[in-house]
Design a protein around this nucleic acid. Structure first.
Length: 281
DNA sequence: CACACCGCCTGACTGC
DNA sequence: TGCAGTCAGGCGGTGT
């Protein structure tokens, strides 16, 4: 499941592969992937050139000529592949950008959850999802005071709050479990009941974890690969995700897997206690 | 606005 | 071995 570090790795790979390529035509094999009208999407993009690729949270922003931006979200299992146009289609290929040089960019997605939307560049804040996105989880954009204030507005558990993307952008199920373990916070801890110490630890862990995971080119758990089909390396660095039944690396207690807000959740029941004003219940 | 819940999808896995 | 049932989960939409 691509989260911010995986999407960033895809961005970097795709930049090297498609910048300055011009679209000759587009095939849409699964129309629901495209938010816009299909015909509009094809006609508007034909003849345009990829000029840059930006990223916001888990969204890829393909900047094209003529002030156009293609917003792309990979959701669970979306992938891009560069191939020669004559290469036989594989299963789960849903959108194909054929370039004028004989190559093609193909979008593959087993679950078909991914979405693409063509908008005028600058209209990003009109796209649902993008417009409510919290700050990037970097030291430059993500400030602890604003983070603390945002957490105060939520009474529900910290885990679903972090998954919402509104308080901070880019974390998914894997990295949320990881940063909560690192900062020793129970996933069910109400967001507005974190202590200042916990907020600072969580804030720091989020920034550091995203940086480390990007450096490792992301985490490959189920099916994620980058634009070249390569796996990430960060799964080896995960402390709790997918490690239920294994000893906690900090205290040796067996890591548990439960459900929080319908999502598989991994944590250490000894290191991550539910607290009231920082005191264990 | 905050929050809970459902639908979207298909492949892998589980139990009989 | 075959097959029905369950699970995985990011996010938009809906309802309270």
């Amino acid at each position: 499941m691509p989260e911010l570090p995986e999407v960033e790795t895809v961005r970097q790979g795709l930049r090297a592969l498609i910048l300055n390529k011009t679209i000759a035509n587009i095939d849409i094999l699964w129309p629901k992937i495209i938010v816009n009208d299909q015909l509009f999407f094809k006609q508007t993009l034909t003849g345009q050139t990829f000029e840059e690729i930006d990223r916001r949270g888990k969204y890829l922003l393909f900047r094209l000529s003529n002030q156009l931006t293609l917003v792309s979200h990979l959701r669970m299992e979306g992938k891009y592949r560069m191939v020669p146009q004559e290469q036989p289609l594989t299963k789960h290929t849903h959108v194909i950008f054929n370039f004028t040089d004989g190559t093609a960019l193909r979008y593959l997605d087993v679950r078909k959850f991914g979405r693409m939307q063509l908008i005028p560049t600058g209209a990003e804040n009109t796209v649902s999802g993008l417009k409510q996105l919290g700050p990037e989880p970097t030291a430059a954009d993500f400030k602890v005071a604003a983070f603390a204030a945002a957490l105060q507005r939520h009474r529900k558990a910290i885990k679903p709050v972090l998954l919402e993307q509104h308080v901070v952008a880019g974390l998914g199920n894997i990295y949320v479990d990881e940063v909560l373990w690192q900062s020793q916070i129970h996933p069910l801890q109400p967001a507005n009941q974190l202590t200042d110490t916990q907020i600072k630890a969580l804030h720091q862990a989020i920034i550091a974890e995203m940086k480390r995971a990007i450096a490792a080119k992301g985490t490959t758990i189920r099916s994620y690969t980058d634009a070249y089909g390569a796996s990430g390396g960060f799964q080896l660095a995960l402390a709790v995700y997918g490690r239920e039944g294994e000893p906690c690396q900090r205290c040796g207690t067996t890591i548990l897997k439960t459900k929080v807000g319908q999502r598989g959740t991994h944590f250490c029941p000894h290191c991550q206690l539910l607290t009231t004003k920082g005191v264990a219940k």
